[in-house]
Amino acid sequence: MALNITDIKSIAHLARIEINEQEAATTLTKLSGILGLIEQMQAVDTKDITPMSHSQNVVQRLREDVVTQTNQREEFQKIAPILGNGSGLPAVQDGLYLVPQVIE
């Protein structure tokens, strides 16, 4: 399963990471090396082996349906990012987080 530059770009897009031509080329080399390492797995016969997601064989605990959280908006929005594009303002207004227009 050899990767090419187009794959790298589409993976980067899926992961929302901007990548230029040069970075894509370097990444291709390094990722191919890592995938080579991973490829060792294919030699193992794993027929009928149950996949292991968790190391402990325990089941999900359930939480009582009781309100335990209070309004911490002010505290949480103190750490909002800067809006950008020269505004110098925090990316919040009227309690809302601001992002570029979402188009549907």
């Binding site: 207004q93 809302l96 987080y97 601001l98 992002v99 570029p100 227009q101």
Partner: peptide, 8 residues
Amino acid sequence: AIEGMSGI
């Protein structure tokens, strides 16, 4: 609410 922006 704001031109060109969406509030979350």
